[in-house]
Design a protein around this nucleic acid. Sequence first.
DNA 1: CCTGGATCTTACCCTACGGTAATTTACCGC
DNA 2: GCGGTAAATTACCGTAGGGTAAGATCCAGG
Lengths: 215, 215
Amino acid sequence: MAIPPSRAGTKGVPRADRERQILSAATEEFGRRGYEATSLAAVAARVGVTKTLLHQYFGPKQDLYLACLAPVGDRLLAAIRAAMDAGGDARPPTPLRVLHNLFTALEGQREAWFVLYDTSLPPDGEPARLAAHYRAAVDELAAIGTLDVLHRTGPADAREADPLDADALAHAWRGLATALVRWWIKHPEESADAMARRCERLFAAARSALGPGSP
Amino acid sequence: MAIPPSRAGTKGVPRADRERQILSAATEEFGRRGYEATSLAAVAARVGVTKTLLHQYFGPKQDLYLACLAPVGDRLLAAIRAAMDAGGDARPPTPLRVLHNLFTALEGQREAWFVLYDTSLPPDGEPARLAAHYRAAVDELAAIGTLDVLHRTGPADAREADPLDADALAHAWRGLATALVRWWIKHPEESADAMARRCERLFAAARSALGPGSP
DNA sequence: CCTGGATCTTACCCTACGGTAATTTACCGC
DNA sequence: GCGGTAAATTACCGTAGGGTAAGATCCAGG
């Protein structure tokens, strides 16, 4: 009776490729299930590889998460910056341009958004710190647009404006984007462009529902 | 040398009270960290009691979660229904009334919202099923308001309207509410009423930012 | 052929956590 | 006082998951 041959040894996949595969799979798992609920075994299985290899290439779970987050954060930040640099008065309006760029940046890795906005990160740790860093950068950009919006519609005397309104609006805006991305994930057939157009329709509809102007 | 006295034995807290304490603590933990990341030991410690007692009163983790979710779901549903039953043309407009009722229902247990909208529920299991049930009920209500909004602003020929727009709008609306609740949690000093007023201001501001009417 | 390095696995350890059985203490009515 | 029940605990088990050490396999290049 032959002893079962060991499956160990190279499979001919160069390290750089493997690392890309792992990062991709891990990003998807982290985004879907959240940091805590993601098991390295699951990531490894998805790649068709063993847990151990992940550790050899990326170190402990924490570091793998960081390796996923960094490129995602950079990509998203760049997308938002590009949309805002076009100027506040261009068409389509800034919020829609931002969304369009976000969708484009997320195409092919839509779950990546939830790597950045993972609510289950252990509060004290490097992951939370790096995520906070990227979130702060995003919020800073959001604050620019937000202040602009509030100044257009706020009370004539700026001192009457509640200083927290800006923060709340930025937060709400971020949450809205999150919800749209989540919906998008549930409808994989929708392209980034189609999604942006859909948002344009929705915004138009929402505008009439929010204000006092509806008959 | 005296053997350390056992701390076992009743502490004079009747079962019904303990159960309320446990439910309250568990709701908060589940809401904060998510189902997967919540440890029963942490809940027990918060109550000042042992893990075992949780099991004796509520059974396995799953059942404790269900015991938390059911009242939360009922409360939130009732709050939304009450807001929508007042009629679509009353002042303030329906979305703001819904938010106001939600904030009021969540006062004192703001994290409860995230028990219902927990993204880290194991996909196959009773928790996910019950949560899906409540979410579906909420979405059904949202769909009513949503369709109303879209019909007011959509193309004259209703056949041109994208049927998925309604679903996406409901989803976005829900996500917006989620973001507002999250912001509220980070600002504990803010009352439910103040929060509702804040939302009114924000909606007014957003309205001008979304549409093509801004100069 | 054979040696060195790159790739990948097997086998293992340790801890945290969910869960159960058995036991201990306090209170309450008689 | 004295059971009996309600309220808790201690002590324990099993497993899943993060992490490590060591070895196996394959592929160049000489």
